[in-house]
Design a protein around this nucleic acid. Structure first.
Ligand SMILES: [Mn+2]
Ligand SMILES: [Mn+2]
Ligand SMILES: [Mn+2]
Ligand SMILES: [Mn+2]
Lengths: 220, 220
DNA sequence: AATAATTTTTAGACTTGTCTAAAATAATTT
DNA sequence: AAATTATTTTAGACAAGTCTAAAAATTATT
């Protein structure tokens, strides 16, 4: 059984693994708000216990064992967040620090019963996916930029990349917003512009715009 | 903010205060499954922080501040036990160790919201009273042995002290059980036996029996 | 009241987790 | 390729919490 401190480090490494391949001492130190020397100490210990592989000066990465355990901590964290928001009526912005404590409670039975009590939620109040008891994440509908989707298929807009006022003005003018249903009718290779159907109306959008609008396939 | 260890010691002192006035090092060491020297170390610290008063070789006792805090830890412990049993469907015998961890989660808001969510329970699954957010316990109906109660007043049987088969056989023969309504009609000083009314029937019981049957006054 | 037994405290050691400062290694610049 | 800079590790210190063994204080017994 790992200490609370070891678990927090492991979780941080897990979270960095999402973007980084091998993780450096300084990167983890920054994430954990500690000093590099403390990280080295902990990394030695976690490596000793084979939750990570580590070569001096060369960085470290999670082992299968480490990854499995980290997923379980994330699972607990997110399940407790669901509990706090859904059952205790906390705001979603208030729950992180409490979940940071609750995630360390040791009882597999508790986690599983909590999961059932909450109705086996797939996402936490911040929209982050909750791994199941085997560490498996719910299948995510992945987002694509508009310029990369199938023709004549309905998608939903889930995000835009550019946050400039000009871009928002453009989107508003044509009533393009989150949740709008969108279908690409035709591609024009000469300038990569697209003829699209947005809700009921049709229009042509430039390649520049098409790269900034992200969509997900509509399920069913 | 106290450490988990400090909180556990404080809670143990609080629990011993119920029977002991001044608490000795060895008594607490036994309760905490530690060595006397560890207790001395911790007692110094808690005294330093004025949760207890302590004189070398003379024992220690809770201050007002210590008592208040300990009651809040007990409150959390018992509320979480209610949660585990009522909501997560644990058996009442399974919840103590988990509550032992949960009682250390730091968030007053969490405790109060949990209390509301559970419907402000007054007793935990083991029948122990839950202090409110001000540390006040629900008014307990206190139990007395039958030989110490008022004449001609209705009481309810809440417990028996002797667990022998012979005694149970006796109780069963006369249909005396938990929840039975009982009234003492007459006392016979020559042998301290009692004439009682048990539910609808009347009988005489010996002093020996009268000391083993515990009752509470019927409210209202 | 002296001696013996018990209880409590102290002294010193060990572990975990952290830090600062210095040394070692790696990466970048010239 | 050497020098400079950045990163990482080591060495040594400290606080918290625990333990064993020895010393001190208290309590009980003769
Ligand atoms: Mn945490
Ligand atoms: Mn979250
Ligand atoms: Mn506890
Ligand atoms: Mn209980």
């Amino acid at each position: 059984m790992l200490s609370q401190s070891e678990e927090n480090y492991l979780k941080a490494i897990y979270s960095l693994s999402y973007t980084e391949d091998k993780i450096s001492t300084n990167l983890l130190a920054e994430k954990m708000n500690t000093k590099a020397s403390s990280v080295t100490d902990m990394v030695k210990k976690l490596s000793e216990k084979s939750y990570i592989t580590y070569l001096k000066y060369k960085g470290f990465e999670l082992t299968e064992k480490g990854s499995k355990l980290a997923a379980q901590i994330v699972r607990k964290h997110r399940l407790w967040e669901v509990f706090l928001v859904d059952k205790l009526k906390f705001g979603w912005e208030e729950v992180h620090d409490i979940a940071e404590q609750l995630e360390h409670i040791q009882s597999k039975q508790l986690t599983d019963k909590l999961d059932d009590f909450l109705g086996n939620p797939k996402f936490d109040p911040h929209g982050d996916p909750i791994p199941d008891k085997n560490g498996v994440y719910p299948s995510l509908k992945v987002s694509f930029p508009l310029n990369a989707i199938e023709l004549n298929t309905i998608y939903t807009i889930t995000g835009v990349e550019d946050g400039s006022m000009d871009f928002f003005q453009f989107l508003k003018r044509y009533e393009i917003g989150l949740g709008s249903e969108i279908k690409v009718l035709e591609k024009f290779p000469f300038d990569d512009s697209l003829r699209i159907q947005i809700d009921q109306s049709e229009m042509n959008i430039s390649a520049i715009v098409s790269k900034k609008i992200f969509v997900q396939k509509v399920i069913e």
